[in-house]
């Protein structure tokens, strides 16, 4: 279990993390979102004990990792860097970390992970000859080699092709489900977070601006939106002009013969009468399900305005 309590980290005058609070429980896949410089990496470093908090605490199983090196045997880490040595082969890298983490039945574990990640045929090649995707896969194998109870991942699928991204996603979900592993995930990839995380924290300028389940975040932030598909030959600009006269409209985004309209919170959107009244033929009107990206951008923009 991870507990972050009133956590603050200052670097001279700069406040990187500002009094943040959240908890993550076993079996949970928890996403940490935010723009560059929002404090995501600082948070992960504070949890790992690589940085000391200016105020507050970052605890894993009730203890700070910086003061309990042996607890780190139960924590897996994949940071921005894969933590691999280019002059060593894939097997040598895994062997090294297996020894550091006191892994029993090393051979069996390494063989299994190499097979799983599809790196078995390249395992005796130096890591320096691996592609970015292969390194990331080996880095992930390294991070879970010792069967940790807590896994901290910083942008795990950054720069990977879609096939490998899916493999990483499936693996993360499987680890959380099968092994009841707590997974803390820093990511820019909102689509990935939406697919695998049950809860998220959104950081902005070091502060928590939202921390909840995805379902609740969608519900709370919901600015209703509709997508209107115009009949063939209908001018989109005319539809935009008509829609902009409606009450409580926030945004109108035309895209070919489709127009997406976002309304203010709690509005009851019904653009059809106005369009029909203006003589515009409509093929379809559908309510849009808010994606995490919509929710995230809405929260970030709202905070920026404040």
């Amino acid at each position: 279990m991870i507990e972050v309590k009133n956590l603050t980290k200052k670097f001279k005058e700069t406040v990187a993390v500002d009094n943040i609070n959240f908890e993550v429980k076993s079996g949970e896949v928890f996403g940490c979102l935010g723009h560059n410089g929002a404090g995501k990496t600082t948070t992960i470093r504070l949890i790992l004990g690589l940085l000391q908090p200016t105020e507050g605490k970052a605890l894993v199983w009730g203890k700070p990792l910086s003061q309990h090196p042996d607890l780190r045997c139960k924590v897996g880490v994949l940071l921005e860097n894969d933590g691999l040595y280019e002059n060593l082969t894939g097997v040598q890298n895994l062997n090294y970390y297996a020894s550091l983490y006191d892994v029993t039945s090393k051979e069996e574990q390494i063989t299994g992970l190499l097979d799983f990640t599809g790196l078995a045929n390249r395992c005796n090649d130096k890591v320096g000859t691996y592609s970015r995707g292969m390194r990331r896969k080996l880095g992930l194998a390294r991070a879970i080699l010792h069967k940790p109870s807590v896994l901290l991942l910083d942008e795990p699928s950054a720069g990977l092709d879609p096939e490998v991204q899916k493999m990483v996603r499936d693996l993360i979900l499987n680890l959380a489900k099968e092994y009841n592993m707590l997974i803390f995930l820093n990511s820019h990839d909102l689509d990935e977070v939406e697919r695998i995380c049950s809860r998220v924290v959104i950081l902005q300028r070091g502060k928590v601006v939202a921390c909840d389940s995805l379902v609740n975040l969608r519900r709370q932030s919901s600015e209703p939106a509709v997508e209107i598909t115009l009949a063939a030959g209908q001018p989109p600009q005319k539809a935009v002009d008509v829609l902009s006269t409606l009450d409580r409209v926030n945004r109108i985004v035309p895209d070919g013969n489709r127009v997406t309209v976002t309304f203010e919170k709690h509005a009851a959107p019904d653009p059809l009468p106005a369009l029909i009244g203006a003589g515009i033929k409509v093929e379809e009107v559908k309510k849009l399900r808010r994606s995490l990206e919509d929710v995230y951008l809405e929260i970030i923009h709202r905070e920026e305005k404040q």
């Binding site: 470093r45 790992l48 690589l50 090196p69 042996d70 780190r72 045997c73 924590v75 880490v77 940071l79 921005e80 860097n81 894969d82 933590g83 691999l84 040595y85 970390y97 550091l100 983490y101 006191d102």
Partner: peptide, 14 residues
Amino acid sequence: TDRIIETLLSSPAT
């Protein structure tokens, strides 16, 4: 410079 040290410092090695 390669930033591998962060991973090593996160391991049980002091």
